[in-house]
Simulated scan of single mutants.
Amino acid sequence: MDVTISYLGFVFFCVIAGLARGLEITSQSATSIEMASGQSVKLDCQFTLGPEDSGPLDIEWSLLASDNQKEDKVVILYSGDRAYEDYYPAVKGRVHFNSPDPKNGDASINLTGLKSSDTGTYQCKVKKAPGIRSRKMLLTVMVKPSKPRCYAEGPTQEGKDVVLRCISTEGTNPLQYTWEKTSDSKLLPATAVLDPVGGSMNLRNASIAFSGNYRCTAKNRVGTEECVLQLGITPPPNTAGIIAGAIIAVLLALIIIAIILFCCCRARHRKKYEKEISYEIREDVPPPKSRVSTARSFTSVGSQRSSLGSMSPSNLHEYALKPQYDKIPSVEEYDRPPSHVPPPVAAKMAGPNLSRMGGIPVMIPAQNRDGSIV
Results as ranks from 00 to 15, higher is better:
Ser303Lys: 05
Thr178Asn: 06
Arg82Cys: 11
Leu64Tyr: 02
Lys289Trp: 01
Leu251Asn: 12
Ile132Trp: 01
Ser6Leu: 10
Cys166Asp: 09
Ser66Asp: 05
Arg149Leu: 13
Ser99His: 15
Val228Lys: 10
Arg221Glu: 01
Glu180Phe: 12
Ile259Phe: 06
Ser355Glu: 13
Gln176Ile: 10
Lys92Ala: 14
Met311Phe: 00
Leu164Thr: 08
Tyr78Trp: 11
Thr217Leu: 07
His269Asp: 00
Ser66His: 08
Pro286Thr: 10
Met1Val: 15
Gln367Cys: 04
Ala17Gly: 13
Leu77Tyr: 14
Tyr273Ala: 12
Trp179Ser: 08
Ile25Ser: 03
Gln324Pro: 05
Lys128Arg: 15
Ala83Asp: 13
Cys45Thr: 05
Ser355Ile: 08
Ala152Ile: 08
Gly309Thr: 15
Pro337Leu: 11
Glu170Ser: 05
Ser310Met: 11
Ile257Cys: 07
Thr121Ile: 14
Tyr78Gln: 01
Gly22Asn: 02
Arg221Ser: 09
Gly105Tyr: 00
Gly50Pro: 01
Pro100Val: 07
Pro56Cys: 02
Gly358Leu: 08
Glu180Val: 03
Asp67Tyr: 14
Cys264Arg: 06
Ser300Gln: 01
Arg268Asp: 03
Lys42Arg: 14
Lys42Glu: 04
Ser185Phe: 08
Phe262Met: 06
Arg94Cys: 01
Tyr273Arg: 09
Val126Gln: 05
Thr299Ala: 05
Ser37His: 06
Ser6Pro: 00
Gly232Trp: 02
Tyr78Glu: 03
Ser99Tyr: 06
Phe12Ser: 14
Val75Leu: 05
Pro288Met: 06
Pro236Met: 13
Glu276Thr: 11
His269Asn: 08
Met357Trp: 11
Cys150Asp: 10
Ser207Thr: 15
Phe298Asp: 00
